[in-house]
């Protein structure tokens, strides 16, 4: 009898899993891909290309060498009554938009990331997390095989016990001599972002109707200039709501952690859905 009692919950479990399986098979699904591209103040973004830092406000020449970030907890959302129902597209992936003009074809194509199959139907929007979700951020690169995006030691910082969620690096010709310099003068900037509290989510509301068996690509753009918006006056000494890149070229000191948080937060504003 006792044995039987043990068996009861087990058999129930069996039923539950069996039903679940049936559901997925019977469901009519569609495939959703995400495509990422970048612009700088509206112009196509390339590393090693020269832009004006903040055109019309600060015309310093800048060029980037790196722009990449993790995306996590991406899902389609559906408005059901008072609440939103989430259908997960992917848990974690990595997007590098560091394409130089020699890689123009790749830049033009953007980075496409395959999401999971989801039930066909109408959704009310998409939710994207920028960074590594907290549960995954407890892990570290040595736990993953080399094919895994979380195996990147280039994007883990032991000092923070965190993945580096995003990198934005480049040089600015602050002294205006027409040369981007590293020797003897400080013209580089290296913004590395990360730690749990900087994980940023953005929900973009837009009706997305997925037909059965359809393969849909959702096109997303990031305008890199928007990452520089600073609402904290201590890092915006020119009082133009923009980061003072010359005085605060990094995100490593404690004080600069504020810049790290703000820039990560700015991803929610920098991202937009394209037609």
């Amino acid at each position: 009898m006792r044995k039987l009692l043990y068996l009861l919950p087990l058999s129930l479990l069996f039923f539950v899993t069996a039903c679940g399986d049936d559901d997925v098979q019977a469901e009519e699904t569609a495939e959703v891909n995400l495509n990422f591209k970048a612009t700088y103040d509206g112009d196509d973004f390339y590393t090693e290309n020269i832009y004006k830092l903040f055109e019309g406000v600060d015309d310093t020449d800048i060029k980037f060498s790196t722009f990449d970030f993790f995306i996590g907890n991406v899902s389609l959302i559906k408005n059901v009554g008072e609440e939103f129902e989430e259908t997960e597209l992917l848990e974690i992936d990595f997007v590098s938009l560091s394409f130089d003009p020699g890689q123009a074809a790749q830049a033009e194509a953007g980075v496409t990331i395959q999401g999971r199959k989801v039930p066909a139907g109408t959704y009310d929007g998409i939710k994207i997390g920028f960074g590594v979700p907290a549960d995954l951020n407890r892990t570290s690169p040595s736990e993953y095989g080399s094919g895994d995006v979380l195996s990147k030691t280039s994007h883990y910082w032991s000092g923070w016990d965190s993945y580096i969620f995003a990198k934005l690096e480049g040089l600015a010709d602050h002294n205006g001599n027409g040369v981007f310099e590293t020797s003897g003068v400080e013209e580089g900037f290296t913004y590395h972002m990360g730690t749990d509290e900087t994980f940023t989510e953005r929900t973009i509301f837009q009706t997305i109707t997925l037909e059965v068996d359809e393969e849909r690509t959702v096109n997303l753009n990031l305008d890199v200039r928007k990452l520089f918006r600073m609402t904290l006056s201590e890092y915006d000494q020119d009082d133009n709501d923009l980061l003072d890149v010359e005085d605060f070229p990094g995100t490593h000191t404690d004080a600069e952690l504020q810049i790290n948080k703000t820039m990560m937060n700015n991803f929610s504003d920098a991202v937009s859905l394209q037609e």
Binding site: S65, E169, E181, T182, S183, V185, E186, G188, F189
Partner: peptide, 16 residues
């Protein structure tokens, strides 16, 4: 320590 030599596509992590 000196930020290397100025050169095309040098990494911005190289700095004085």
């Amino acid at each position: 320590n000196q930020g290397g030599q100025t050169s095309a596509n040098v990494s911005p992590l190289i700095r004085p």
